[in-house]
């Protein structure tokens, strides 16, 4: 054996043979169900608010706030990470995923203080979403503008 990194086809075969595959079908099914349930519940709440004469945009805001609040509460209670393991993308894709990434980081780095800990690290994971979200939105908006101008 040589100490330097080298691709060893035989060893790779062993690794593949003994590494269990990710249960993709199960993960997809659970993500579909949990994501569907969460968004259906959110929609039910929105309709309930609309039926009580709340303005359309206000109702949307309240629903988003409710999902963020619930996620943060469950994160703080130490329950969300277990739900995340089971539900996967079902909870990661809706705004619950974004809320959890911020709350978990903020909580985790509390021990380093309010400013350098929570403040600096709250966007540790969510920062990438913001950077690429704003970046791609800017790019697409510029593109749309240019196409309209042509």
């Amino acid at each position: 054996m040589n100490g330097k990194p080298q691709t060893d086809a035989h060893y790779d075969q062993l690794v593949q043979r003994y590494t269990p595959p990710r249960p993709i079908a199960k993960n997809c099914a659970l993500a579909f169900l949990s994501g569907g349930l969460l968004t259906a519940a959110a929609e039910a709440l929105r309709r309930w608010l609309l039926a009580r004469d709340m303005a359309e945009d206000a109702a949307g805001g309240v629903v988003v706030f409710a999902v963020i609040a619930l996620t943060s509460l469950l994160t703080g209670l130490g329950v969300y990470d277990r739900l995340g393991q089971v539900c996967g993308a079902g909870l990661a894709v809706p705004i619950s995923g974004f809320a959890n990434s911020m709350t978990s980081a903020a909580l985790e780095f509390k021990s380093e203080g309010l400013v350098l800990g929570t403040g600096c690290n709250a966007f540790r994971l969510a920062g990438a979403v913001i950077v690429f979200g704003i970046g791609s939105a800017g790019l697409l908006a510029t593109l749309a503008l240019m196409l309209n101008l042509v």
């Binding site: 978990s104 909580l107 780095f109």
Partner: peptide, 17 residues
């Protein structure tokens, strides 16, 4: 967990291996 991976309460899905 927090040094090598993610914050403890971050809900990512880990593979079985």
């Amino acid at each position: 967990e927090r040094q090598f991976r993610y914050p403890n309460e971050y809900g990512c899905q880990k593979p079985p291996h």
